[in-house]
């Protein structure tokens, strides 16, 4: 075999293996899901069709619209709360910790929980916020409350706390990297020109770190949109998210076509958010070179 032919064969093998994998396990499943979203529910499963009934249901039945709005509200609140915690934390790590070694240890301590059991991290909040939970028993024990209260768990508050907790590391990662990239000379230049620390922050540091905030918020919003685990554990009756509804279509409610249509709606929303944030990030990017 000639050298060039062999190289072509190798290249072909290198490309086609992962290409086939993505086709079979990503592209085809999306297409099947898309097809199913036009099928009709018929006991015990469903029948092939090409109807817009499922999408129409989502639009007409206010239940779905309300859940979508609630999910969006929670997702945005979670992203905002996560920024409030992650930004000062990242800023502190990048600008106030002088030792490189300590900084990278602390940074690791912040982002490592990201990959630790999602389920267990949500679960601990159930044990903390519950009626017989740690927070309640602490408040009663220390005399702040006469008896335990139900206000902490099974509502949107507990959803926001739990999801914020889960996504703070996701937020710290891009913000930290954006802050780290800012040349110190720019901040010093601003100070040398007599600009105060607050204005330096608002006019130099914050704008330069915005791409990190946008990236983190995008991740957080998209992943919150797809969460049904936290909703199951701490959500309660008013905490149902769009993913909870989708999940029940494939379980108890058994309406796969509607579930598929709702998944497509979620997919479109998430992809829209990603491409919007991509555009926003590109527009806001300031070239430092």
């Amino acid at each position: 075999m000639k050298e060039s032919t062999r190289r072509n064969v190798t290249s072909f093998a290198i490309v086609s293996t992962p290409f086939l994998w993505t086709m079979i396990f990503l592209f085809v499943p999306y297409m099947v899901m898309f097809t199913y979203s036009f099928y009709l529910k018929k006991f015990p499963t469903f029948i092939p069709a090409f109807e817009f009934v499922n999408y129409l249901t989502i639009i007409v039945d206010p239940q779905y619209y309300q859940v979508l709005v609630r999910t969006a509200k929670i997702a945005i609140t979670v992203a905002a709360s996560a920024v409030m915690i992650a930004y000062p934390l990242s800023y502190f790590l990048v600008f106030k910790i002088k030792s490189n070694q300590l900084r990278s240890i602390l940074y690791m301590a912040v982002i490592v929980p990201l990959w630790v059991s999602y389920l267990l991290r949500a679960y601990t909040w159930k044990t903390i916020l519950g009626n017989e939970g740690i927070l309640n028993s602490f408040l009663v024990w220390s005399g702040f409350l006469d008896q335990p209260t139900d206000i902490f768990l099974y509502n949107q508050f507990s959803m926001v706390v739990t999801l914020t907790y889960i996504f703070v590391p996701f937020m710290v990662m891009p913000i930290y990297m954006a802050l780290e990239k800012i040349p110190r000379s720019m901040i010093e230049a601003s100070k040398d020109l007599g600009v105060g620390p607050i204005r330096t922050f608002l006019r130099v540091t914050l704008p330069l770190s915005m791409p990190g905030v946008i990236a983190g918020a995008t991740f957080t919003i998209c992943l919150t949109f797809g969460d049904f685990v936290a909703a199951f554990l701490v959500g309660g009756p008013n905490g149902a998210m769009i993913a909870t509804i989708i999940q029940s279509q494939f379980g108890a409610t058994l309406n796969w076509p509607l579930g598929a249509a709702l998944s497509i709606v979620m997919l479109v929303i998430v992809l829209t958010i990603i491409s919007l944030s991509d555009r926003l990030e590109r527009a806001g990017r300031i070239d430092l070179d």
């Binding site: 290409f19 990503l26 499943p29 999306y30 099947v32 991740f219 494939f250 998944s263 990603i274």
Partner: peptide, 27 residues
């Protein structure tokens, strides 16, 4: 397109990967 597709599961909620594959296995 290939790059985008293969990296998609990072930002996509797991439920979408799960459900779409469930649909395909069923088919």
């Amino acid at each position: 397109v290939f790059r985008r597709l293969i990296l998609l599961p990072i930002a996509l909620p797991g439920i979408i990967t799960g459900i779409s594959m469930l649909n395909m296995f069923k088919l």
